[in-house]
Write a protein that binds this DNA or RNA. Structure first.
Lengths: 241, 241
DNA sequence: CGACACCTTGAAGAGGTTCAAGAAATGTGG
DNA sequence: CCACATTTCTTGAACCTCTTCAAGGTGTCG
């Protein structure tokens, strides 16, 4: 690994509203600029951190797209999340001082490296940051509750619908289209995240196309009927009781 | 609701090693005693907090057993976890200042109420507490990763085996038997947690009994072959690829 | 003791997986 | 820049696991 690094500041970062608290005084903003030690570029296919690696920092994604995944010795493999610009990864490492999953860049990426001891230090001085860190961790817990609901109670179509809606919603919050998106991950990775085989993901896409709900050309997806997808996720008659 | 409340202190609590940081100075220990505002009793079947309720506090379980569950408007229902003495619940509420799931007592319980603003206040002064809070949240994230692996890649037998092993392990850490346990939840609640129907849970228990892996008498379970269960969870030949 | 909640078991059925083959896209080296 | 290798995606058919529906048994609590 050859981490390319550049020094930078949060205070004039255009992603600040996504990964930092808002409404800070100038003084507090200056303190925040000490948060990011360096930036680091990660090429597509490379890992930002891996299972077992010593935990030192959280990472705010500036550009690019990541997956986090769990690989057990006996060959199981589970994608636990997909992360995009403005999101923070590495929280899993805090509890045992070492990472418990791999973070893999699905496209060339750049992250802000935030040493965790520095986060804790500045958190003690800047209340807004302290609360922000707590919120980020709580948000991740709530997100995972949602995934548990998905994995535990939804059928294939419902899972894929929920997945697509979640992706566009997050992309839209970053200024992209509400209805069009380019998948950065393979069918197999989607399947791993959704607890389905890649063939099932592919078939379900095909079903959506037949129904006129979406257009799919490889990884390019256009959502034609957002409410149709929403109905799939929410319709009480659809559940496996 | 009629919360029965008693004032108390952490410094002489016999569960301290489970829910509080260790190795504190006397001064820091005294600060911690301000953490717990009151205790609160929750009767079996009652809720400690519910979805939508304003978030004010985290709760350390002193006695009893809880489930947390997500219930959506359209009738889905997902148990997201089972919690026992020494564990902390309520973390889901931080991000939006309101709880996003229900916490239901599965047996008469008592919790220590820790107002979150007080946690943040004392965290700023006591580094060990600050780090401890971070670890608790990170631990919950990692636990949920494990559940995602379970729900996403395991078959019914593997899920139930993993579930039982996890339960006895946590009970053992609290001084109970390594091989015997009393389930505090119904088959349906186990099923909801594991993404299975109650009938499947029941059948899988029966299969374990046939195989001589466990003895089951209603909610009383005795594990006869821990390694057999372990093998089920870890055996690479068992997966659905 | 009777009502109710909980658990077990069977049989039929559905949804997703597995295996297999081929097509489409992507990347690589000459 | 093209030919070839590789990865990724699609689709079909058979199979398997888990679910659904149904009925009866067991335990518990007022």
């Amino acid at each position: 690994m050859n981490p390319q690094t550049i020094k930078v500041a949060c205070s004039n970062c255009n992603l600040r509203e996504l990964c930092m608290p808002v409404g800070l005084s100038d003084h507090d903003l200056n303190r925040l600029d000490d948060l990011v030690a360096v930036r680091r570029k990660v090429k597509r296919g490379e890992t930002l951190f891996t299972n077992g690696e010593k935990f030192t920092s959280l990472y705010a994604i500036r550009t690019g797209f990541f997956k986090t995944c769990l690989a057990t010795e006996d060959g199981r493999d589970q994608v636990t999340g997909f992360q995009m610009a403005g999101e923070v990864i590495g929280l899993d490492g805090i509890v045992n001082d070492q990472h418990s999953c791999d973070a893999v860049a699905l496209e060339d990426a750049e992250v802000c490296v935030m040493p965790f001891d520095r986060i804790e230090e500045i958190s003690r001085e800047v209340m807004a940051l302290q609360h922000h860190v707590h919120k980020i961790m709580s948000r991740e817990i709530v997100r995972e509750h949602g995934v548990m609901l998905l994995l535990g109670s939804m059928r294939a179509e419902e899972r894929l619908a929920a997945f697509l809606l979640n992706l566009v919603q997050r992309l839209h919050a970053r200024g992209f289209s509400q209805s069009e998106l380019v998948l950065r991950m393979t069918r197999e990775e989607i399947g791993s995240y959704l607890g389905l085989k890649l063939e099932t993901v592919s078939r379900t896409f095909s079903k959506f196309v037949e129904d006129g709900t979406v257009e799919v050309k490889q990884r390019h997806v256009r959502i034609l009927d957002t409410e149709g997808l929403q109905r799939l996720v929410n319709n009480p008659n659809n559940h496996c009781h």
